[in-house]
Amino acid sequence: MLLDLTLHQPIYGPKPANRRMSWRGVANSVTGRIEQTDFTALMLAVRDQQDRAAFAALFQHFAPRVKGFLMKSGTEAALAEDCAQDVMAVLWNKAAQFDPARASVATWVFTIARNRRIDIARRARRPEPEVLDWGPDTEPDQAEIYEAGQETARLVAALSDLPEKQRALIQRAFYGELSHSEIAAETGLPLGTIKSRIRLALERLRQNLS
């Protein structure tokens, strides 16, 4: 049922001896392409100092991407532009919720944009999991913050390395074009590849949760 997953190492199974090695390989191969701008630092400046210049920089980068994301999700251009404005306003207004140890700015913006898309469609509520408190006032670990910030860049690089057809399928899934049963039935969706690419993120998140 889970497509080509059987061909890959089970993600929660015993560690293959070369797992670390292969990850280091992935990280190294993309180092040159990891974006120069430190979005996490900009976002923290917005969160902690209400830094308008940092917001402007984030807007310049993310607003066009939110607009594009919404348009590719089937939203007409003018509405997508308005919604991109809304999403960035949420980023400013709810900056206090940004936790750099949990998600990169891109991931956080994605969740806001996704929720805005659900609003537009006025399809239905999307119940959210119970909120987890990650412990009172634990100072986030710098290495963790760095890792969370890098994950998106690594994944962008990994996606661009995929054959066009596979990349398009992942995009369609996240643009909201595929239902869960279509995702399950789609044998071309490189789930195994995705999962091997997010393995580091998974390990980090699971450590934080346990």
Binding site: P64, K72, F110, T111, L132, L155, A201, R206
Partner: peptide
């Protein structure tokens, strides 16, 4: 927690897809 972590990881994929979607404003 296993599925919570997996969900967060898939949202990271969403972030990567968004990074790749720029359209001029």
């Amino acid at each position: 927690d296993t599925c919570r972590a997996a969900l967060a990881a898939f949202e990271t994929v969403g972030g990567a897809v968004l990074q790749d979607s720029a359209v001029p404003l």
